[in-house]
Simulated assay, not measured.
Amino acid sequence: MILEGKRVLITGGSSGIGFAIARAMLAKGARVAITGRNSERLAQAVRDLRGNGLPVTGVQADVATPEGRSQSLDKAIEVLGGLDVLVNNAGGVRAGRLEKTTEVEIRTMVEVDLVAPILLTQAALPHLRATGDGLVVNVTSGIALIGAPFYATYAAVKAGLARFGEALRRELKGEGVRVLTLYPGATDTPMMQSSKAGPELGFTREPPEAVANALIEGIQASSFEVIRGGEARAKMIAANRDDPGAVDERFLTMKSALEEAVSGHSAL
């Protein structure tokens, strides 16, 4: 897909990976609308993106609610005159032992990370079909590929979103709408600020710009998926498939340190 002139809606676009994707798409000539829950952060993001006179619109909305999804889609279509690309990026996380995770936290992750992108995609599909060259991008996580201890619910919802995208891609094949799944690894974003897990535990953080640039390359190449983490991630995915017990043992050696490092990781 050539992004020049494309009309793009990015949820959770006021910071982190979403903001970096917005900037990268604007640089390719796309017209962009971003959503965010925090009005001040959203306004600052729009100011930053407009710094070079780029065409971007901010929509304050919570896409975990029906009203927020409707407002996001309606405003984007009104301003952009249609929709070519939907980027389901908004998400939240609460790490820690399952027994210590509250029902509210679990339900919030399910609603924000899985239900919201499914329902927003459903609502956006008629508009994406109308272009004849539509695209849905689902931002999941490397944890969707390799389940990590203390991220049980987050792994579940992100893996669910990944399989949703795979099934929808096949459902829509030949109908003018493609689906791409993005699997970021640990990324230096506000969502990761409360996590103390570092490279010694396998959480080597890369800048969000690197993730966004890889996504742009994937879109231009009509890829099905973009997986971050390089050769090390590829080897671990293979090991998790061929000898999952060995991966279990590897996590066991770091389990105590990992639990301590991520017990406060919360961004909901």
Rank of each mutant, 00 (worst) to 15 (best):
V115G: 08
F164L: 12
P208S: 14
S195P: 09
E260C: 04
D188Y: 12
F164Q: 09
H127N: 02
I106W: 09
G91M: 02
M109Y: 07
A45C: 01
V137D: 06
I216D: 03
N52V: 03
G176L: 05
L98I: 05
T108L: 08
A210F: 10
A261S: 13
T57V: 13
A124E: 00
E105G: 05
A64S: 06
S14I: 09
A116N: 07
A144S: 03
A159G: 06
P244M: 00
R47V: 05
T204Y: 13
R241G: 02
M25R: 03
M236D: 10
A90P: 01
L135F: 07
V87P: 00
P117K: 09
A257S: 11
V211L: 06
A123E: 03
P190E: 04
S15A: 15
A212F: 04
A267G: 11
R250N: 14
A148R: 15
S194Q: 14
G58S: 13
S72H: 13
R97G: 03
A234S: 01
G230L: 09
V247A: 08
F19A: 14
A33F: 09
E231A: 15
G245R: 10
Y183E: 02
L73A: 06
L49C: 01
I216C: 00
N88M: 11
G147H: 10
